[in-house]
Nucleic acid binder design. Structure first.
Lengths: 116, 116
DNA sequence: TCCATACTTCACCGATAGTTGAATTAACTG
DNA sequence: CAGTTAATTCAACTATCGGTGAAGTATGGA
């Protein structure tokens, strides 16, 4: 990943509205959520939200598809993975004791079950 | 982790100089690097760098210790872990097929060996 | 065709961030 | 203590960001 793109992705997430939007979409999973519902859920004005979604979208962190009148937004999980890897690249010169807790934390993440 | 702190950490990383500084410190591991050496390595003016380090520091992403005249900066790996977890919290409603690649990617990360 | 719904785009304003140059604090050396 | 190196703090300037109101585009129903 290029440094420039990483900065754009981090900047996209570095704002309270956008961060909440992104986390909401992460929780929603691949099905996504229509823009209007995001707007109501997070109490963000539709035009403001639209600008935020545009930014997240052009950073490659979310995508959308149309269903009737609604635009359904969902998270781009692959981009997120790229970003996380970029941040931890060549981490800590192989000190397992330093990095291992990070990996463990992400694996937990109140997300999926770890693959046993 | 509070939303506010997460935003501050992301904002701290969302700038090319600071991102490069942080990645350099991640690669350096627990030993860290003196401010002057960071300045020379990345060609950032000392006063500019100082402001950036301050921001990273107050976001809890780096810490420093004094050794003689030098201030040695190093990454705060635990904070980073917290941030990553916050971003992926309750990820994708348990769709393992979506989240698993992310975990795998971070585990790889050109970092430490995965614990087998 | 006309209207309502769902979002987006545009123009504008106040607030905040990043850089620079000058001055300042801290620590070692002779 | 004077001089030097290491790094930080301060003030000022420009550029960019985030939110708002108003207007515009697209889809579906009567």
């Amino acid at each position: 990943m290029e440094s420039d793109l990483a900065v754009r992705r981090l900047a996209a997430l570095a704002q309270s509205n956008r961060l909440e939007v992104f986390r909401l979409l992460v929780k929603a999973g691949p099905d996504g959520i229509p823009a209007g519902e995001i707007s109501r859920t997070l109490s963000i004005a539709p035009n403001t939200l639209s600008a935020q979604l545009n930014l997240l979208s052009s950073a490659g962190l979310v995508k959308n598809r149309r269903e009737g009148r609604s635009l359904i937004y969902s998270a781009e999980f692959e981009s997120m993975a790229d970003l996380l890897v970029y941040l931890m690249e060549d981490c800590c010169q192989g000190h397992q004791d330093v990095c291992q807790p990070i990996i463990a934390a992400v694996s937990r993440g109140d997300c999926c079950e770890p693959t046993t």
